[in-house]
Nucleic acid binder design. Structure first.
Lengths: 316, 316
DNA sequence: ATCATTTGTGACGTGAATTCAATATGGCCC
DNA sequence: GGGCCATATTGAATTCACGTCACAAATGAT
């Protein structure tokens, strides 16, 4: 239909150049146009505005009253456009507010320790770190990057894998002393578990049964809104929880939590991804910098879990 | 070669519209574009800036950090462009400084009396009236309109005829009593004249000689820089002068100046024009208004010059 | 008066931007 | 979990404004 025919900014730019250089031909040279092109452009502008801006002969240019005012405004406007675009353009140096959303265990253990170094490297970046385990909408939350564990419900989001970790079902020693140690997934029905207040990508706990896996889950004694709360509940002896090894490794090694049903553990790894909004348009520099930084520095040690001679679990 | 491909202002306008309306499709409707057009334009903009401005899914739009800043600036810049153009555009109402340059006799007798009414009609116009008889360069003097008598050395200037007046050779009674009354143009050699300090379009004084005209001019006793000075000199009896009838009509009627060589007067009329810079671009409203006003209200009465029974000259 | 330089104009061709399909995606209700 | 509607994106075709080219007009200087 109606097409975007008039290029106001170009008009202003040419107009200002003509005045600055004092002639159509000089301006044309500078702008890599032909004099006739400049002439037509100025004429177009004047015709559109309905009033003359430049009185011109072959030798002299003079601004009309309107031209004077328009020139001054145009100079300022062009400057502001320049500034706006420069500000918006991804400079070589990342800057601005970077909003990162991470799940709590990974955020606390792996992201937060890196932040001082990241901010030191990019002083113009301000970082907003939000820790949540619930699924979030990247855009709704105005987050640039989200860090999530578990299978991706992929969309047009792009994910960079940061690492992976095994999941372990654990219980506190005093809980296990009270409720007993489950020998098979079926025993879970007699136990109490720690569930989630939010829907998770995988519903139950997977266990190995021959070639396949089956799911089982103990009736929940409590629901946690994030992994860290779940861990604390488990430490307090509320019930069994299935948590990431990188998260509770130290607890296991210290004996505060004890893995159970390890021989049924399917050994699946839960991947941890940094996920961002992806490919259709260029990525802000600060986002790229942060993701690159994470990918470079995050090392999720995923040691084997072995039972020592005394029955205690050790990380190798 | 290098073409003016990017239309920054259109980019900004579309971008702002998208944000305001909250969607590509709505913006497209409003802007009379297709959604795909909007999509590509935004993508172009982001690609040019090298950073994403809008995070988008099919349902939601969210501004990035850069987008936020760019949006606010863009809104302001668009407003300023609008204002600049509106200011520059020839509004319905004339405004601004109008510079008029007129020759002195006509300016004093016909222009100045009209000015109060003109300014009353157009309160937003400020008028600079300069009276000079020397030829001026319209642009050099930054004049919008010049009023000149005599043949036009036409250029790309446009002239509107305001009226015309006969020229008369006159002398003061006491001068004529001293020097005698010339009977033919040849007698002028024995007289003294009043010339001009500046080059005039016609050199000599034309006189009828049968079918043709010949030129003659008395040796100058003084030179005047404008018609009014010449008139005063003539009134003072310095010598003969050739002046416009509209200028010295009252002097003639009062007997302060006496026409001579009237039977040799070729009866040519000297046209009076309002001249302005013309056709290549639209005329500022204030200029058009002034010229129209002049053309409408100026009435150069050009009565016949007749000799009464008592030898005195009368205007009919 | 002639000349060099600059602006203006008419016709033309180019290419970037827009449109028109068709596809992919997201959110919502069931 | 699956189908539907609205929306955004993509690729190919098309078009129309814009700048170029060649020529004319005009200005100011020598």
């Amino acid at each position: 239909m109606a097409r975007f025919d008039t290029n106001r900014s170009a008009e202003m730019e040419v107009f200002v150049r003509v005045i600055d250089l004092g002639g159509f031909t000089q301006a044309a040279r500078k702008l890599r146009l032909t004099p006739s092109g400049v002439s037509k452009l100025i004429s177009r502008l004047e015709a559109r505005l309905g009033s003359r801006l430049i009185n011109r002969t072959t030798r002299k240019l003079t601004l009309t009253e309107e031209g004077q005012a328009f020139y001054q405004r145009a100079v300022r406007i062009l400057g502001e456009m320049e500034e706006a675009e420069r500000e918006a353009a991804s400079g070589a140096t990342p800057r601005g507010r970077l909003t990162v959303n991470s799940n709590i265990p990974f955020g606390m253990l792996h992201v937060m320790p890196l932040i001082p170094r990241f901010l030191a490297k990019h002083p113009d970046v301000t970082l907003d770190l939000v820790l949540t385990d619930t699924l979030i909408d990247l855009m709704q939350e105005r987050a640039d990057v989200a860090i999530r564990a578990g299978p991706l419900r992929t969309s047009r989001l792009v994910a960079r894998k940061l690492g992976s970790s095994r999941m372990v079902v654990v219980g506190a020693p005093d809980y296990l002393a009270r409720a007993g140690i489950p020998k098979s997934p079926a025993d879970l029905a007699e136990h109490r578990g720690i569930g989630w207040t939010f829907p998770r990508s995988i519903r139950g706990w997977p266990f190995k049964r021959g070639e396949h896996t089956e799911e089982a889950v103990p009736p929940p004694a409590a629901r946690a809104s994030d992994g860290e709360i779940a861990r604390r509940l488990a430490l307090g002896g509320v019930g069994l929880a299935r948590l990431a090894l990188f998260h509770i490794g130290p607890d296991i090694e210290a004996g505060r939590l004890v893995p159970v049903l390890q021989n049924y553990n399917p050994g699946d790894r839960e991947d941890i991804h940094a996920v961002y909004v992806g490919h259709t348009a260029p990525l802000p520099a600060r986002v790229r910098a942060f993701i690159d930084f994470l990918a470079e520095h995050v090392r999720v040690s995923d040691p084997a879990l072995k039972r020592a001679g005394d029955g205690r679990w050790k990380l190798a």
